[in-house]
Design a protein around this nucleic acid. Structure first.
Lengths: 136, 136
DNA sequence: ATATAAATGCGAATGATTTGCATTTGCGAA
DNA sequence: TTCGCAAATGCAAATCATTCGCATTTATAT
């Protein structure tokens, strides 16, 4: 699975890349470089933040990963497969929940017609008020 | 117009805020803090980057502005009015063009039903291949 | 088995954004 | 109108995520 992904992208199969992809794959939410770093270290593997950043960048370029930006400009990463997800975050309590549908799918065709661009990636950040906070 | 916006937000009317809002208003695209800074300086007004950042942050909090994130994590700002826009950027040549429709409008109701969250803001970054680059 | 390009680790650099603090300014109350 | 005080500003220094340079190691095609 992961081997194929790397092979298709023309990338060497290395220990670091396996670790990184495994962690992202098993994470239920988009995950930051820093968190990946901590997890790998806690499993007492040697590693390095720049390697992680480099790997994440390459995997994004190759469209294996999606980069998700929080409103503070920091990035998280998730697999770019059919199961990729979007969240909405409450600007009062910071809780975030999953959104069922990816709005870009429907939009993609529209954009091709409008602009001629073929959509290869997207990042969406939604903020709102959650029901709890809204009551207050 | 700008006076009302500030008053409604409970903010003092200052020279800096007027300048910043005027510049954002008259910009055809989302604009960075740095560019705002350069424009104000080039009009030979004294100013300071931290003031600009502080102002932009407050205006975002008050929902007068939308913060737009590029995939490198840097921010641009535009008015949060009905005319706000989204763009798609070619990952090969970096050209970006306007997208006619804001996909969030249609999505907003859906999200309320799914999650109970009321959508107050959003940031979308789309990447793709432009027709020119696609030919190559 | 070996050559070569790619990947890694480490430390230092970068660059956008934030913060602390002293000074100035806007504005409501007297 | 003047006064007082909180809010806003300017400046310099700090922060923090991310990137870069370079020496060393590793994967893979031949």
């Amino acid at each position: 699975m992961i081997e194929e992904m790397l092979k298709n992208a023309g990338l060497k199969k290395t220990k670091q890349r396996n670790l990184i992809l495994e962690i992202i794959k098993s994470s239920s939410k988009p995950i930051t470089a820093e968190k990946i770093f901590e997890i790998i270290k806690s499993e007492s593997n040697n590693t390095n933040l720049s390697t992680i950043y480099r790997t994440l960048n390459i995997l994004c370029e190759k469209s294996l990963l999606l980069k998700i930006l929080k409103s503070d400009g920091t990035a998280s990463y998730q697999l770019n497969d059919a199961s990729h997800k979007h969240y909405i975050t409450c600007c009062a309590c910071q809780n975030s929940v999953l959104i069922d549908s990816c709005p870009i799918k429907d939009l993609s065709d529209k954009i091709v017609n409008e602009t001629g661009y073929i959509v290869t990636g997207h990042s969406i950040e939604l903020t709102g008020i959650c029901p709890k906070c809204n009551k207050k």
